[in-house]
Design a protein around this nucleic acid. Structure first.
Lengths: 246, 246
DNA sequence: AAATGTGATCTAGATCACATTT
DNA sequence: AAATGTGATCTAGATCACATTT
């Protein structure tokens, strides 16, 4: 997908283009151009830097977001302060819907892993859109149900699969959603640390480091500081799916 | 909550009462009586025995259900055939919505843990209701979002907490949703095996058995064949929340 | 027959402790 | 300074193997 807006300033200048882009967001699919323009006119852009937050878990759910550039990780914190990464989203993805759906506080946090820009609506505005545009409500059901089904599958995998397979799946998922072709193979297109992978898969950075070292020895991956390239993705698929490795 | 219908035969006789009951289902909250009556008239009841299925994971998502009596576990199977229990639902709970929300197959299975009766609509019917009754779509977003948030919390717990705590949480959850006061304390009101608890918490029946034995020694639970009574629920809360135990 | 209980043993992966790299 | 690599050690909980209970 092409970049939507390179920065916050370019956004308000072209409302027609904005409406066209919004129509490609799954949540707003199927809406008439004038409705999209009206929804778009109620948004304002917000840009944050890498490591900054759009919102914290537990904060008042005052706003709804659609990411227009960058990557954002959706996280939860344990009472002991350990972070868990639920998913990493990219441009065109909606997040922070809890307020519009009736919750008082965000059940998750949202942190930029690289500089990010999002369109922001107040939760009240988005609740009104949900209530006046039945198509948006239908899209929202499908969107949230999709998230639920995906998490159910990963929950099952966390319950039943070994760490190696879960880490293999996480890497494949990341390149599927954010892969960039490079000479050596497919690279994950934003900074990912061993710690990030550990927080996505329910293990420790030590174990991720050892797995990546072992895979590097076998020529399956190449990795550096916050950078991972899959040189033989099919070999990781074999690990993830328990296929014979040829 | 009082029993809705003791068996399939009693259902069709009183459409007004049916509409009143449907109005208490979260998904149908806020609908006018005539709309409820129309929705109710399109349902038919289905009764199955303990251990039988309303549907299998992966089957065509042809129908939508509201449980009116009994308990149903929502499950997933691993490729190796191991079962995982995502949740156990009771009367008034909706399930099998995937078809109405646009999926072709059920992402989970639904098995009765005791004799159960559900109202059944075709997925097409329910999709039409979703499309013509904006309030139902709004309710559905809230319902599915609630399921998602709950699973996100449990996913985090599965990633970060020890087995003992997860099992303590599972028991507390079961008595909260299906607890029955008895002389000795609070009993889980349907048959639960060690295996069921293991499939809910991502451990083995052996570990659950050992935990229950240890807790029985400490006077926290009493348990028998497919039966668990919490005699000191507060002690389990202390285990689940890491409180000092007094 | 299916569910449960429990001792003995094993092991995947966590934890600890440093060293090295970017 | 933050991220990574890796040897040494530890341990929670799985696995195995029976015995017992309902």
């Amino acid at each position: 997908m092409a970049r939507w807006w390179v920065d916050a300033e370019t956004l308000p200048h072209d409302n027609e283009e904005l409406a066209r882009r919004l129509g490609q967001v799954p949540l707003f699919q199927g809406l008439a151009a004038d409705v999209l323009a009206r929804i778009g006119s109620q948004a304002h852009p917000k840009a944050i830097g890498a490591g900054e937050l759009f919102f914290n878990e537990g904060a008042d759910a005052e706003a709804f977001f659609v990411l227009t550039s960058g990557r954002v990780k959706l996280t939860q914190l344990t009472p002991e302060g350990h972070q868990v990464v639920l998913r990493i989203i990219g441009e065109g993805d909606a997040f922070g819907g809890a307020g519009a759906f009736g919750d008082l506080t965000y059940p998750i946090g949202a942190e930029a892993v690289e500089p990010a820009v999002a369109l922001v609506w107040t939760s009240d505005t988005m609740r009104q859109v949900l209530e006046t545009e039945p198509r948006v409500a239908l899209n929202a059901v499908q969107f949230v149900a999709g998230r639920l089904h995906d998490l159910q599958r990963r929950h099952r995998q966390l319950m039943t699969e070994r760490v190696e397979r879960r880490v293999a799946r996480a890497l494949l998922r990341l390149v599927r959603e954010a892969g960039r072709r490079v000479d050596a193979g497919v690279e994950i297109d934003f900074p990912v640390s061993r710690q990030d992978i550990a927080e996505m898969t329910g293990t420790t950075l030590y174990t991720v480091s050892r797995l990546l070292s072992a895979w590097e020895d076998r020529g399956i991956v190449e990795s550096g500081r916050q950078r991972i390239t899959l040189t033989k993705p099919h070999a990781l698929v074999a690990l993830a799916e328990d296929l014979p490795e040829r």
